[in-house]
């Protein structure tokens, strides 16, 4: 069995959103979900309310949700809630993408013996601890 080494440039490549030929309605839906917390947690998308808020027909909202889910930009869970694919953040924030890619290949931060030893106190602090001041 061949084990492939992690390649951040290959793993984190996300097609740019402007190459996906999304319609304005689909972009509006993505923006609505992002704005309502769908980036950090799965949220309920009440189609009637969204259609009212975004000023689209309900059928357009359903179609937009279906295409975004088919593209993988939205992740739908069993409860019917939607969450934005976390890779979308990497796509739209290149600086974060570089940071995450570097984090995946950088060495682990391991505590050394000095870190495990008790914290060193200054001479003044040590003297203060030894001296019992009269009240």
């Amino acid at each position: 069995m061949t084990v492939h080494a992690f390649d951040p440039d290959a793993e984190f490549v996300v097609p740019p959103l402007y190459k996906l030929k999304l319609t304005a309605a689909q972009r509006c839906m993505l923006d609505w979900i992002e704005r309502n917390g769908g980036l950090f947690a799965a949220i309920t998308v009440p189609v009637e309310d969204v259609a009212e808020d975004v000023e689209l027909a309900e059928s357009t909202v359903y179609e937009a949700l279906a295409r975004l889910t088919a593209l993988g930009l939205l992740v739908r869970d069993k409860a019917g809630e939607y969450r934005i694919n976390a890779r979308y953040v990497l796509s739209s924030n290149p600086a974060l993408r570089q940071l995450f890619a570097a984090a995946m290949v950088d060495p682990l931060i391991t505590p050394d013996t000095r870190a495990e030893a008790p914290r060193k106190v200054s001479n003044a602090d040590a003297r203060r601890r030894r001296t019992i001041r009269p009240v």
Binding site: P16, Y18, S92
Partner: peptide
Amino acid sequence: PLYKLKLSGAEWDTLDYLRE
């Protein structure tokens, strides 16, 4: 909110292009 501005597909794409 951007979704209130009735942006066209090309306008959304322009924003994405600049952002990336």
